[in-house]
Amino acid sequence: MPRFTLDREIHLIQDEVLLLGSLVEQALLNAVDALRRRDAEFAHQIERADEAINEKRFAIENHVLILIATQQPMAHDLRLMAAILEVITELERMGDYAKGIAKIAAGLANDEILVPIREIGFMADIAVSMLHRALGAFIAEDVTLAYSIAEEDQQVDELYNTVYYKVVQNMIANPSTIDNTNHILWVLHNIERTADRVTNICERTVFIATGDMLELDTSDDEKDV
């Protein structure tokens, strides 16, 4: 019963994607936590855990390629496989962002510098929530949900702009802290880019369902700054 096997294989791959997503969500939240608690040891752990994310991403890619080669899926199923290849790449990049934040957290661990950790925490929570629901929408192929999540990116962008401004002002007021304050800007940037990549996942969701590749990210980041 080839159809039955194909469906089962697809479900297994989808489960793997969800697990990868969970690893990435965890990494992001952990990285921000390490920054909050100035815990260098924890931060190093998170950096090391990125390896598992990369490995899993390649394992899924492998799985998908084998399925395409052996089962020769068509139409919707083929779009789904293409979308999955794209999504796991996005997830792996998000994992790298988390690793970057953890690195910075380790670097700032012994520094007295004031970090706008509440705002960073808010941004990270929104981004992770978006990711969590976007992956759910992706698996369920819920186009409406995908659209609405893509719009939440605006919230993150607004927060980003506000905090960026504050941090830059801080920099100007305390030039001796420029190096470390710069790192905080990178943290903000990483979270903002994470939310952007979630939007890409939403675009892929629409793609699977409709076959259309739309551009859902309406903001132009470079212009706004």
Partner: peptide, 11 residues
């Protein structure tokens, strides 16, 4: 549904 789909948490 699979436990992965419902719980969405690797741990």
């Amino acid at each position: 549904r699979s436990v992965v789909e419902v719980m969405r948490h690797h741990a």
